[in-house]
Design a protein around this nucleic acid. Structure first.
Lengths: 131, 131
DNA sequence: TCTTGACTCTATAGTTACTATAGAGTTTAA
DNA sequence: TTAAACTCTATAGTAACTATAGAGTCAAGA
């Protein structure tokens, strides 16, 4: 499988795949006579693993750690659990942050009563004054 | 006021202030004889405005637009309203995304029943298999 | 006055995770 | 054979910072 097909089937772009290879998240594939990268099923599976982790908003370093644990079957999976736990906490924190931000924006939006000139703009006034 | 004091009082770092000057989000300040930047109250206020917008998660380009409207008091503030509205929509979308992500992580966490070897790890298994 | 530590300067490079592009080589189907 | 699609490496750019090197300035204390 060449890189274009791998990209289509994995949902990652060609450049991203090369990037991951450079970061050593993916192994170096064999090459054709014309120097094209040739991917086997194992690398394809690894890329799909990475993509699933990316879709979970894990950082590339976290993904690297999971790959490392995965590659050593006798290693304890306590670290996996902990990593996911910490990630969940961060996501929950982000949710809280964004909800607070939403409340702020809703409140700010209410400062704009009518179509005014900028000099009378309730939103700009709120953004200007000290709280 | 020199840049260190401005940084402390605004909550932005020295490098960030220089960065904003380079981006023309802040005007070029006067200089002392020793070539130190000297900031007056107007620039300080502008930086605080930028900081408040940053705290609302607006992009620098959005902040640039607000500053532009603000600097022309006869301009319609309809654009301000629209910008905040769109931002609010994006925040709400992000909340939905993170909530979905949270559900996925909670579900994933439940795949890990006990302290296993990596080869038996429920989380890694979930991340490996096709959905 | 001298010294020294704190402060400031510019230039440059790095962070994270990509993304784009230039110029060149390879492949494939008509 | 030809031309379009594909692939390659190298380099630079994106957004929003952040760090650092090496040099200059300032201010307080001895």
């Amino acid at each position: 499988m060449k890189i274009g097909e791998l990209a289509r089937r994995s949902g990652c772009s060609i450049q991203t795949i090369r990037y991951y290879e450079k970061l050593k998240l993916l192994p170096i594939p064999s090459r054709s006579e014309g120097n094209f990268r040739l991917y086997d099923i194992k690398i394809f599976e690894q890329l799909k693993f990475i993509k699933r982790c990316k879709d979970l908003d894990l950082t590339l370093d976290e993904i690297r750690k999971l790959l490392s644990i995965k590659s050593e079957p006798n290693q304890e999976c306590d670290d996996v659990n902990r990593l996911i736990e910490r990630h969940l906490e961060r996501v929950e924190f982000k949710i809280a942050e964004f909800r607070q931000l939403r409340a702020q924006l809703i409140s700010l939006r209410q400062a704009c009563s009518e179509n005014n000139k900028a000099v009378d703009c309730g939103i700009l006034k709120q953004l200007t004054k000290d709280s």
